[in-house]
Amino acid sequence: MKNRLKVLRAERNWSQADLADRLEVSRQSVNAIETGKYDPSLPLAFKIARLFGLSIEAIFEAEA
């Protein structure tokens, strides 16, 4: 699933590991989500959205 994680992360100057720490997941998980290869569960998607103070739709974009 396409997403804006990389941009949001860059805006805050966070590394993948920094974001992983904040989400309490492994760095590999952040990498897999960011590259769109793994779709997070709804609870994790909410956690990501809350961390950035955005809605899920503002971060993730379903392929048309």
Binding site: E24, V25, S26, Q28, S29, A32, I33, Y38, P40, S41, L44
Partner: peptide
């Protein structure tokens, strides 16, 4: 395992 990606 709390990391859902690793669990998958």
């Amino acid at each position: 395992e709390t990391d859902e990606f690793q669990r998958a």
